[in-house]
Design a protein around this nucleic acid. Sequence first.
DNA 1: GCCAACGTTGGC
DNA 2: GCCAACGTTGGC
Length: 157
Amino acid sequence: MKYWLMKTEPDVFSFEDLIKSPDRTTFWEGVRNYQARNLMRDEFKVGHKVLVYHSNLADPVIPGVAEVVKTAYPDDTALDPKSDYFDPKAKGVSPWVRVDIKATHRFAVPVTRSKLKTEPALAKMMVLQKGARLSVQPLTELEFKHLCGLGKPKALP
DNA sequence: GCCAACGTTGGC
DNA sequence: GCCAACGTTGGC
């Protein structure tokens, strides 16, 4: 079992948008960073847990939990000139990948970044390190469990 | 809105 | 292959 944190700007795609998606599932597209892509392509397995992180807020927040339901496959938005995620260098098979994730639990207590910073157990979380821009980050099992302790996950119906 | 940190690009 | 310039991210 592995645990991940995935950033999204809630104006673009929020956890609530994920919950409203068919089967609470969507393809996580638009990752255009090699390190993040390699994690999704090489490390993501079905059943891995994902914490969604809403960035670019006055106080960023983790609203809930999802899980990987499909491993990496080509992200064809890179080939579509009309897409926001178009990559003019991409030719043939898209070099970028997406995975499918499904929302499983909403946090009864959404965990804010300001809260994270008060937790000694989370001091090493990548997202708290200065300049940590990576949009897909690994979490340790202990970090994941600690975060769930704070967030009080409620299973989605 | 500001700006530090980072990743990428491109001239040499 | 170096590195300055640039564009983007994302916290504050």
